[in-house]
């Protein structure tokens, strides 16, 4: 059961906003953000950057993975107001139709998705993995991509796609 904490007083107080400056996909914007808004909800509901997906809102599925200052992170676990000055890259910033990122092309060519819902998170996570420079082998990619769930079971195709791109860059 949900419990009501300080119901009488807290509930009646408007939550207020905090001015926050974020660079998203190269574009710097300042927004008045309520402190309880996650980066994920800000992107999806506030900025209409719906490529970042909500699969659990608990940091358990990886669908909301974005890159903050080149590092992959679950955007559902980050309150947006804590990111003042951060540089955020979402799937929309990696590539667009007609100008695909190598990972996006590789995912298409390897059929590394079915329903497509986990896909932006998988791709952002893979880019983070490449940035980290740790994964070279299939086993390492599998281990270090395990935070990104795919219920359609496209895992082996995803690893093939990621290895393709790692191989090109190696």
């Amino acid at each position: 059961m949900p419990t009501a904490v300080n119901t009488a007083t807290y509930a009646a107080v408007p939550i207020g906003t905090v001015p926050t400056t974020l660079t998203i996909n190269g574009e710097t914007r300042t927004r008045a953000i309520e402190p309880w808004t996650t980066l994920l909800d800000l992107l999806r509901e506030g900025e209409d950057l719906i490529g970042t997906k909500k699969g659990c809102d608990h940091g358990q599925c990886g669908a909301c993975t974005v890159l903050i200052d080149e590092r992959r992170i679950n955007s559902c676990l980050k309150l947006a107001v804590t990111l003042d000055g951060a540089d955020i890259t979402t799937i929309e910033g990696l590539g667009q139709p007609g100008d695909l990122h190598p990972l996006q092309s590789a995912f298409c060519n390897h059929d590394a998705f079915q329903c497509g819902y986990c896909t932006p998170g998988q791709i952002c996570s893979a880019q983070g993995l490449i940035n980290e420079g740790k994964a070279k082998t299939r086993d390492e990619v599998r281990e270090l991509m395990s935070g990104n769930l795919c219920r359609c079971g496209a895992y082996s195709n995803i690893v093939d796609a990621v290895l393709d791109v790692i191989g090109e860059q190696a």
């Binding site: 490529g51 996006q104 932006p120």
Partner: peptide, 9 residues
Amino acid sequence: DGVEKVTGT
């Protein structure tokens, strides 16, 4: 429908 899915569109 792959391009739409990999680009988040």
